[in-house]
Write a protein that binds this DNA or RNA. Sequence first.
DNA 1: TCCTAATCGTTGGTGTGCAAACTAAATGTA
DNA 2: TACATTTAGTTTGCACACCAACGATTAGGA
Lengths: 152, 152
Amino acid sequence: MTDVIPQTDPLALDRQVCFALSIASRSVLAIYRPLLQPLGLTHPQYLAMLALWEHERLSVKELGELLQLDPGTMSPLLKRLEAIGYVTRRRDVNDERVLVVSLTQRGRALRAEAEKIPPAIVEALGMGLDELQHLHATLTRVIGAARGAAAR
Amino acid sequence: MTDVIPQTDPLALDRQVCFALSIASRSVLAIYRPLLQPLGLTHPQYLAMLALWEHERLSVKELGELLQLDPGTMSPLLKRLEAIGYVTRRRDVNDERVLVVSLTQRGRALRAEAEKIPPAIVEALGMGLDELQHLHATLTRVIGAARGAAAR
DNA sequence: TCCTAATCGTTGGTGTGCAAACTAAATGTA
DNA sequence: TACATTTAGTTTGCACACCAACGATTAGGA
């Protein structure tokens, strides 16, 4: 009972879940930033690399679906990854509409560096693994609920 | 036990908390968007209005601290709110460095419209209030942990 | 086969977020 | 009082994130 005065205002800033969600997301990204900088990656670029380390080659559309990002967001992002030299972008031979993104040798090699990041984050956050797993589960439920709402 | 094959790869995309956090944040914001559009507000602008409905008048610095946003982000955002006609921006008479942001009549009146939003969100998400409160508490812990890490 | 519709990615516009350089104003100190 | 320092906002540059319009390609149907 930290609040003597009951918070009844549904518009109180510190009661908004969306507000907590934005800040939490930005705060956690801020921890990644210095760790990703040596790799030359931003956080969305890092997520794209994670997807490629898992799948080796993906179309822009598939990557966008995995990361839940617009093609208009993916397109320039992938061009930057290509400019750095971590991926190649080539039209599919069987369907000239689709652009296949593949890892370069340098992109594949980067994985070894990236493996240091998750433990560094956990260490920096100072939260237990069980707690983080629980958070992950909760967030997954929110994502499901939000996507359900969007579909309606 | 949905996973037959144990997920041991710490770089698996769907195990990253940062990934879940980004997507959850964006997914929830997507629910706000159509609700805020009639008010002519983006989500960050909505958060600024929440702060002003609570405090009536705030300096740019104070607003930035409340919303955890850069002055470089606040500055153009507040100009847009002024252009719409919801706030005024005036230099403080006692200290010409600080810019005081205050609500206009229209800005104050908007609150009545905004009151419909939180229940609409809860309804759309279809999650229980207790569940949302629990999420809020968890996010608050993450924010604290992340801010602690940043300070180190 | 020809034509319409659907698919895939790109481009341009707007609005954040963050960092760094900059201006104006106030503060503290010699 | 004069000057260096600090503080508050603005501006610029870059990278998302989303939307709408567009061009190229493919698939489907008359």
